[in-house]
Amino acid sequence: MSAAFDIIASAGLWAAVLRIATPLILGTLGALLCERAGVLNLGIEGIMTFGAMIGWLSVYNGADLWTGFLVAALAGGLFGLLHSLLTVTLGLSQHVSGLGVTLFASSFSYYVFRLAVPVAGTPPTITPFQPIAIPRLSDLPFVGPAFFAQTPPTYLAIALALVLAYVIFRTPLGLAIRMTGENPHAAEAQGINPMVVRYGAVIVGSALMGMAGAFLTLSAFNSFFPTMVQGRGWICIALVVFASWRPLRALLGGLLFAFFDGFQLRLQTVLGGAVPYQLFLMIPYILSIVALALMARRARVPQALMQPYRRGER
């Protein structure tokens, strides 16, 4: 018990929480935006993998970190375009298309990575984003290192959650997105083109997923290796439900989740040996499943989620 308390009282945990949370926040926001417009995007796992790879590769080849981040976002957007073509224009099953995008994006990432970087004993590294301490605030105990001594993409992720919350609930554009996700026929009657809204939401959402992946290789770690996304994309999909499709709750959910994950990682070092480490590694996935079970009934799903829209067809 006291071990658990020591962990919670350590500044290291709190600094780690936001670092672990950042890709989850970005990915969840991306998935949330797609779903608000009525499109489930299971491409997320693959798009994150591709973002991680292409962001890293750009920087490895001499681009600066922000360019790498942008390239990852653009690549994510392109996969979003592909997903939109399949699910919005053709109206194909969003489940299967999304899985197809994930399988394609991840295998394509490995292919490109293997072409660009020959097999080596230790994977090559880059210099990642460095933490920027915000003057004064970062000196506060606990809160300081946790929230005010992070790398720039983390601040960006938090800002994006606020922006997205504002856009979705306080602007005409947000209303159009929500209407498209609830009832595209009604949206169309209001002069909104549901196709355009869905394309836009899926492309921008997928760009966010690309950024989530890039954070892994440009900030959290400094190299790329296959399977590094480790189901984070699927966890994001679960977090969208946990957040009831609200950006601020997605921010909160990401932090809560990262807290458990960071706690679990430190508990591993304390109890290492006595308990198999795999049990700790299962915790994030099991937590996601539990969160789904708790929230699925209460959450209000966008009513037109996963329903293709065809003009004049019901």
Partner: peptide
């Protein structure tokens, strides 16, 4: 029972199962 979409749960259980085997 809870109207949870099985896509996400089956995907997440893949990771749990492999970790279980690894353990």
């Amino acid at each position: 029972r809870f109207t949870v979409d099985e896509v996400v749960t089956t995907l997440l259980l893949n990771f749990v199962a492999v970790l279980f085997v690894s353990m």
